[in-house]
Amino acid sequence: MPTDTALAQTRSRSMSLPRINGRAVVMVLYLAFLLVPIYWLINMSLKSNAEILGSFSLWPRNLTFENYVTIFTDPAWYWGYINSIIYVTMNTVISITVALPAAYAFSRYTFMGDKHLFFWLLTNRMAPPAVFALPFFQLYSSVGLFDTHIAVALAHTLFNVPLAVWILEGFMRGVPKEIDETAYIDGYGFGRFFVKIFMPLIASGIGVTAFFCFMFSWVELLLSRTLTSVNAKPIAATMTRTVSASGLDWGVLAAAGVLTIVPGALVIYFVRNYIAKGFALGRV
């Protein structure tokens, strides 16, 4: 449609000159506001403690990777990362496995109590972890799971299972029902249809859900700290305890912080178009 493009061009040309500038200024200021504190963390992680406390500089004068070396050679530090990755992965696998059939049920069928159940799941996503900290501690202690990875993984299903069900349901609604019906007519059983046909169709949805389960389990501190002491202690807890104990090793603390940002930063590009959807529980 040539007229449309012409119109669009006139529009953008006539409105652009004063507006583009204003918009660019807002964007630059906002992004600077977001990035400067992160830059400062990176800056500090590349300095020695003597330099951090001794002089004030906007960039590292004596660039050093010592803080990162400390983390990668001290088991107390790097085990924090390994522990976190173990329980986060377990949680992601559990959450998606149980959420897949449930999301399918919610997207395809009505059944007794479905609306109530869906709402009840949501309340768990909204529940303050502080309410659950003490009962979780007692529950997992009484069944002998305290300070294990699976305890944290199960505790995090509190908010990740509802999240997974809601996001997956959002993606599944987009798949036309005729596909299911055709497959059943062609003689597929439910299990084979679900794994062979349906799951590939919502593969991107599963990927996005996995990302968000991973993320929300990775960023949580209160429950993971309450449920662990030594063997499954997450990196987040390692960091806070170091602060309260010595309160001095700023360089290592900054380096540890930078390393916790890395997993999210690595995959963020691939999910950029689904970030809004994921944070809004699949409702956008």
Binding site: M215, V243, A254
Partner: peptide, 20 residues
Amino acid sequence: VLMALPLLIPWNVVGTIWQI
């Protein structure tokens, strides 16, 4: 991508960033 970055930082690290 840049805007989503703060959303993906562990909450205690957010605290640490501002503490520093």
